[in-house]
Simulated assay, not measured.
Amino acid sequence: MTLRIDSSAQAHLDGAVNRWLEQVIGRAILTDAREYVPKRSGRLAESLRAEVHDKVLRVGSLDVNYATDVEMGTSPHVILPRNKKALSWPDADHPVARVNHPGTRPQPYLRPALYQRRSG
């Protein structure tokens, strides 16, 4: 037995799946991610978006470059100046040529939002 769906029915089905992903699942994941994200300035939480294209849901930040570093953490690394000869910041004793950063611990917010048990 072969089941065929005509092209207009397939378009309606695809549209319904896209709407369900965006309006139900995407909103739920986005709401949870915004709740779980660490909030220092609130910029990362405000940058989170959910979008659907061709039955694929994507949730995350497009314009905050440190979003992945918050989610996954960073390993120890060296920070060097880009445009000057030394680094300086408020309360620093003196400018320095390099900083040995110890790394940051992961603070997952997207994965816990994704893995929530959902009904509907």
Rank of each mutant, 00 (worst) to 15 (best):
L30W: 07
D63C: 01
R4W: 08
V17D: 00
N83V: 06
P108D: 05
T2N: 13
V59F: 04
L21F: 02
L110S: 09
A67K: 08
W20E: 01
R49W: 00
S8N: 14
L110G: 10
I29W: 01
Q10A: 15
H53N: 05
G60K: 01
L80A: 11
V52S: 07
Q116S: 04
R27C: 00
V56K: 07
R40V: 09
G26F: 10
D91I: 06
H94V: 06
R4V: 13
L57E: 05
Y109V: 10
N65Y: 06
P90L: 14
L30N: 09
L48T: 04
R27S: 01
Y109C: 08
A33D: 09
S119Q: 13
R111N: 01
G120W: 01
L48K: 02
T104F: 02
L3I: 15
I25A: 03
V52F: 08
Q10M: 15
N83A: 10
H77P: 13
V24Q: 12
T31H: 13
G42Q: 03
S61Y: 05
H101N: 11
T74H: 10
G103E: 08
V24E: 11
M72F: 14
K84S: 15
R43E: 15
L3G: 05
Y115Q: 12
I5D: 05
Y115M: 12
V24I: 13
A16V: 01
E22P: 00
D93C: 00
A97N: 08
P95V: 05
Y115W: 10
A9E: 13
L87I: 15
T74S: 12
A11M: 09
L62K: 13
T68H: 08
L57K: 08
R58S: 08
I29P: 03
R105F: 06
V17A: 03
A67G: 14
Q23Y: 05
V70P: 07
L44D: 12
R40Y: 07
A45Q: 08
D63M: 03
V70M: 03
I5M: 14
L110K: 11
A9D: 14
S61F: 06
A45L: 06
G15Y: 06
Q23P: 04
P38D: 02
K84P: 00
P81Y: 11
D14S: 14
A16W: 00
W89A: 15
N18C: 11
A28I: 03
L80D: 03
D54V: 01
V17N: 01
A86H: 03
R34A: 02
I5V: 15
H101C: 06
K39P: 04
